[in-house]
Design a protein around this nucleic acid. Structure first.
Length: 726
RNA sequence: GGGCAAUUAGCUCAGUUGGUUAGAGCGUCUCGUUUACACCGAGAAGGCCAAAGGUUCGAAUCCUUUAUUGCCCACCA
């Protein structure tokens, strides 16, 4: 077979992937030899709501390198794949799509909406899976899982029920972050802050002056709050009643003394709107004050606003200010006031805090079986190094976040997701956990009037259980013993941007459910950014399609470029030139192989390097360097310094092996006394480099290996299961 | 307000526990098509490793301060 002058990735990658898949070696149960020690990575399931982006290419590359390396080291490797229904994220994506079509979920039935999203997600799932294959992912497709698979939901429901019975999950009507656009409550993490310059108004409130940037919330205000130590207001006593004129007429205000008031801020006096402000809500709770809803869930004023009822808050604001001005209650306006406003992290609309019933998980409550709280178990895990974040600087970040953790709201008022398995008795108000969805009468009073909880789980509640849920689901589905064999897993590899969303929750939920860490090490990668260091996002339209890159340069080049000069945890600005350079490297390797094969084909020398007789200084030098490379790159890989390993292998291959040794070999091959050892050295160096390079550039290395096999120049098995060089 | 990081060649970035002339990709310049490779080879230019001070036999690497940049967390009506 004539070998082409240059390597063409497109011709071989699909073929090679097929060979791998047919070998069965992605599946740990089908690996040859006696492999005892497991090595497991649970793949962070890509969201099945969009085509894949370079972030996926990065995580697939890193995880595939780790898995292939360990597989060649003789481990029983399981890389568990899956896709995520991604509740809120997907619903947002789909609602945008509806919006473009002039539709809205509010004019659809819940069932129809769910069905449409289901179809949409199924289509994306397949696209995503095919993309993972093009990237060379050697994950076990036999175990492929979806977050809405019944076996997964069963595990999730089991956890919910256990937590409810343990008193860790409770329902509360406290104030929550409400997005008026998406019509759902959100966790703190799902909101962001932005600095805005808005007018800050000072109004006369009886004898006081109060400041606010949100006059539209003030209709129901009937408590005036000041610090108990504030000397300016010492003549007012807690509980004093005052008659005063307010926006829509006279009100009776009650004086409240509370230490939450900052004496330095404004006039040191404020009125409170407990239904629409978290701080005010807390003050009201402390003093058991009345609370009145002023703004509805769509962000419009309620009848309490009188003439302003029905207006959107931002439209109402200037009108309300005008009215107060006319009434002579506007004292002054500070136009230079800057403050942070809270926004929905997805749509950027203002968060409008609302009092809504939500399910919460207690983060700091000790477990009834005597174990510490979820939060403390996670902190202990780091403390005891049962879980280590190898991207070390994130340990501090993790710990700090953990220490300040508040209870986690896990219910969402969205339709796309796992339904909360709860029914309520309309008569006796009993809460009934109904996992099978087949309970039709109240367990307590026998009433048949049951209503289903309309909410769904926060996606992170289910994906937070992913490491053990997938393995449990495998066992239920396939009769495997995955939980026994593969849990706890070895490595969780994911982006630092979901450290809190996901990693933290996995640690807590895993300890809760299994009493074990979900994984031993956490490797956090950075974000792939565009060439201007901008975050790639659909909304910015700067997303680069990895498949296009693969078409042009090949998967191996993309993979090598992604890990080549990237330290863990650092963001990666993608330069296409780098990928191009790595394609050249692949071609270099190809031609090294071509040269060696060409020389070996025309000879019949016995290949062996154990007998150094007839070796030259050049032979010995390259073998020494190769030995050092094996040691060093193995060490780097074991310690997650993939980029270091990649650079060293690159440097050796090109600048030691090709530039120096192969050049020297051309002379040595002319000498019959040197020829045998020279050929042996060439062959040995090549096969070793192929092995070392295989985790990084699996396609080209496997392809060359296959060609060597066809010429009886390599062992019969696939390169992917060859023994790692020692 | 609190915290974390970064600052190294024209550009984008590596540099594990401090140890010989600080590296890579791309770019620039010169030369070269001798059958592995022009997706190449040979060679060259280009860095007081942000600044100052300190520790050390020795610092890009450790410490202190400063400057600039980026990010995270919290959030005051």
């Amino acid at each position: 077979m004539e070998l082409e002058k240059s390597y063409n990735a497109n011709d071989v990658e699909e073929k090679i992937y097929k060979i791998w898949q047919e070998s069965g070696y992605f599946n740990p149960d089908k690996l040859p030899g006696k492999r005892k020690e497991p090595y497991t990575i649970i793949m962070p399931p890509p969201n099945a709501n969009a085509p894949m982006h370079l972030g996926h290419a990065l995580f697939v590359t890193i995880e595939d390198i780790l898995i292939r390396f360990q597989r060649m080291q003789g481990k029983r490797t399981l890389w568990q794949p899956g896709t995520d229904h991604a509740g809120f994220e997907t619903q947002v994506v789909y609602e945008k799509k509806l919006d473009k079509e002039g539709r809205s979920r509010f004019s659809m039935t819940r069932e129809d909406f769910y069905k449409e999203v289901w179809e949409f997600v199924q289509g994306n799932k397949h696209i995503t899976e095919n993309s993972l294959k093009r990237l060379g992912a050697s994950c076990d497709w036999d175990r492929n899982m979806f977050t809405l698979d019944p076996e997964i939901i069963k595990v999730v429901y089991g956890t919910f029920e256990k937590m409810y019975n343990d008193g860790l999950i409770y329902k509360s009507g406290r104030i929550c972050n409400w997005c008026p656009k998406h019509q759902t409550g959100l966790a703190d993490l799902e909101t962001k802050y932005e600095e805005r310059q808005e007018p800050f108004y000072y109004f006369k409130y009886g004898p006081f002056t109060i400041g606010t940037s949100r006059p539209e919330t003030k209709f129901g205000d009937k408590y005036v709050v000041m610090h108990p130590e504030d000397k300016r207001y010492k003549q007012y006593k807690h509980g004093d009643k005052l008659e005063l004129e307010w926006i829509n007429g006279p009100v009776t205000a009650t004086v409240i003394k509370d230490e939450a008031v900052d004496m330095e801020f404004g006039t040191g006096v404020m009125t409170i709107t407990p239904a629409h402000d978290p701080i005010d809500f807390e003050i009201a709770q402390r003093h058991k004050l009345d609370s009145e809803t002023v703004i509805d869930k769509r962000g419009k004023l309620l009848p309490i606003a009188g003439e302003f009822a029905g207006l959107k808050i931002l439209d109402a604001r200037p009108k309300i200010v005008d009215k107060l001005k006319e009434k002579g209650l506007l004292e002054k306006v500070d136009e230079n006031y800057k403050h942070n406003v809270q926004l929905c992290y997805k749509c950027g609309n203002l968060i409008e805090p609302q009092v809504v019933d939500q399910w919460y998980i207690a983060m700091t409550k000790s477990l009834p079986d005597g174990r510490p709280s979820l939060r403390d178990m996670a902190i202990n895990a780091l403390e005891k190094k049962e879980v280590e974040i190898v991207t070390e600087r994130f340990e501090k970040v993790f710990r700090h976040w953990m220490e300040n953790l508040r209870d986690w709201p896990i219910s969402r008022q969205i339709w796309w997701g796992i339904p909360i398995p709860v029914k309520y008795c309309s008569d006796c108000k009993e809460v009934i956990i109904d996992i099978q969805d087949n309970i039709s009468s109240c367990k307590k009073c026998g009433s048949a009037k049951l209503t289903k909880d309309p909410d769904t789980f926060d996606t992170w509640f289910s994906s937070g259980q992913w490491p053990f849920a997938t393995l449990m689901a495998n066992d239920a589905k396939h009769g495997t013993e995955d939980i026994k064999n593969f849990f706890p897993t070895q490595v969780m590899e994911t982006g630092w941007d979901i450290l809190f969303f996901w990693v933290a929750r996995m640690v807590m939920l895993s300890y809760y459910k299994t009493n074990k860490p979900p994984f031993q090490k956490v490797y956090l990668h950075g974000l792939v950014r565009d060439k201007d260091r901008q975050k790639m996002s659909k909304s910015k339209g700067n997303v680069i399609d990895p498949l296009g890159i693969i078409d042009t340069y090949g998967t191996d080049a993309l993979r090598f470029a992604l890990v080549f000069s990237t330290a863990a945890g650092n963001d990666i600005p993608l330069a296409e030139d780098k990928i191009k350079g790595m394609k050249h490297f692949g071609n270099k390797l190809w031609n090294i192989a071509r040269f060696i094969i060409m020389n070996l084909e025309i000879t019949n020398y016995k290949l062996q390097i154990t007998n150094p007789e007839g070796s030259t200084e050049a032979d010995r030098a390259i073998l020494t360097k190769l030995e050092a490379l094996i040691k060093s790159s193995t060490n780097h890989l074991e310690n997650f310094r993939l980029h270091e390993a990649a650079q060293e292998i690159y440097h050796f291959t090109w600048h030691e092996f090709a530039d120096v040794y192969i050049e020297a070999s051309k002379v040595q091959l002319q000498d019959e006394n040197l020829k045998a050892f020279t050929l042996s050295t060439l062959h040995y160096s090549l096969t070793t480099v192929l092995k070392l390079l295989h985790p990084f550039m699996p396609f080209i290395t496997e392809h060359i290996w296959k060609i060597l096999q066809e010429k009886n120049l390599a062992e019969k098995n696939l390169l992917m299961i060859q023994e790692w060089p020692k």
